[in-house]
């Protein structure tokens, strides 16, 4: 039985027919929608490499069946920058060397964007480390990752104050 769904992916509406309900959001993005920025690591929700935002919340795309997401708004790493203007979290990862090989980086960045939006961690390094524990980095760039998320959190909070003032 095939299933037709529509998703808004990085601001663009995509109508998709799924021949098989087994397709995960991760495989749909990578194999069907030509968005390979979202990475497949463990494929079991343990490593966080596949983290994307669905309706503004960070999730593991490997454990989400695409068929369940009809009507959802999905943001992937490809949708963060505005042209050549990097998202503050992307810029902070560059500034603070928040990566080595880079494989986990899209997931780290999407998770950090989600974490900052959740508003629970603030600029407390311990809360940021705890909040980022669903993203593994086998190169162990954790120090730079924490610094990047801290810096981006500060910059985004300042920007919010500036805009609302």
């Amino acid at each position: 039985m095939s299933h037709s769904i529509n998703l808004t992916v990085n601001g663009t509406r995509r109508d998709v027919t799924l021949e098989d309900a087994r397709v995960t959001l991760l495989d749909l993005l990578r194999e069907r929608l030509a968005l390979p920025g979202t990475k497949k690591g463990c494929d079991r929700g343990q490593c966080g490499a596949c983290t994307v935002l669905v309706d503004g919340r960070r999730i593991n795309a490997c454990l989400a069946l695409a068929v369940t997401l009809d009507g959802a708004e999905v943001t992937t790493i490809e949708g963060l920058a505005k042209g050549d203007h990097l998202h503050p979290v992307q810029a902070a990862f560059v500034d603070h060397d928040g990566f080595q090989c880079g494989y986990c980086t899209p997931g780290q960045i999407m998770s950090a964007v989600g974490l900052i939006a959740e508003g629970q961690a603030g600029i407390d390094p311990e809360r940021i480390r705890e909040g980022m524990s669903g993203n593994l980095c086998r190169c162990a760039a954790y120090h730079g990752i924490t610094e990047a998320v801290l810096d981006a959190s500060r910059r985004m909070a300042e920007e919010e104050v500036r805009v609302s003032a």
Binding site: R58, I59, N60, L63, S111, G114, E118, G131, S133, G134
Partner: peptide
């Protein structure tokens, strides 16, 4: 329990 991503779902 679990991670931020998993707790969201």
């Amino acid at each position: 329990g679990a991670s931020g991503q998993l707790r969201n779902v």
